[in-house]
Design a protein around this nucleic acid. Structure first.
Lengths: 142, 142
DNA sequence: CGGTATCCACTTAGATACTG
DNA sequence: CAGTATCTAAGTGGATACCG
């Protein structure tokens, strides 16, 4: 099935990114569910907010707005609400004047953040390789 | 900084998703670069195609179209081209009639796929918890 | 078979203004 | 402060038709 052959070095390197082995046989229905869920999480802002809360712990709305560079208030509100609905984020409202709202990762969000750690590490270690690939590709296109 | 307290059980569970420790101090410039790159990869189809090639090894265009349920030809072409440009995917053209094109993960794509394994595992293990969170959230909204 | 090109309906997200 | 509401420009992606 897998016709592509990878070097031992490549395979060994891949192993360093894996904490556990990938489950071999997954129920197709579960597979579909999971893909849908992944698609839901896999948007620009969810990943960045997850990471920001992973680093920062508990943050106020305005702190998040400052740290997540480039996000609009609308998208921040929207994404946080979806993440809260998905059980990734806990929203704590202090009914003071002016109001104060704190966001932090739930247990679910914490473990998802941990799972994303390796992707993040991969990105740190390989972003120059990606840049090189892009340059090389663009050159070939004349 | 981190005001949220997690139980030992939660923290221990998070550890099982991590292959390696997260680098503490990252150059802000690198951080920005990496976030941009993550945002680029974090779209609906890239993750699914990465996973499909991770499972399937070398696949023809039409095989990918069949296995990546719901994708249009346009999006498949587009996403594959961007992944090829990013150095994640290798495209091999057999100049026969009718033409035959095979796609597989490069070394870079293989390691990224490995990095995503834990996210995938997390999704398999927690999709019911997410569904429960959604139901509970929607109920609270009346 | 594996694309490309064009058109268009729909979604998305930024800007702006307003509120408890 | 932490949102909500509205409008709109731009982008996205599906459908369709065609090509090497």
């Amino acid at each position: 099935m897998n016709e592509t052959r990878y070097s031992q070095a490549d395979l060994a390197k891949a192993e360093t990114y894996k904490a556990r082995d990938y489950p071999e046989n997954v129920d197709p229905d579960v597979e579909k569910l999971v893909r849908d869920m992944m698609s839901g999480f896999a948007d620009k802002w969810t990943v960045v907010i997850l990471d920001t809360l992973w680093d920062g712990g508990t943050l106020r709305f305005s702190e998040l707005a400052r740290q997540v560079t480039g996000i609009s208030q609308k998208m921040l509100t929207q994404t946080l609400k979806r993440m809260e609905r998905d059980g990734l984020v806990v929203r704590k409202l202090y009914p003071s004047v002016p109001p104060k709202v704190e966001y932090s990762l739930s247990s679910l969000g914490l473990t998802l953040g941990a799972a994303f750690c390796n992707v993040w590490i991969w990105a740190v270690e390989n972003h120059d390789a990606v840049a090189a690939a892009r340059n090389s590709f663009d050159d070939r296109q004349d």
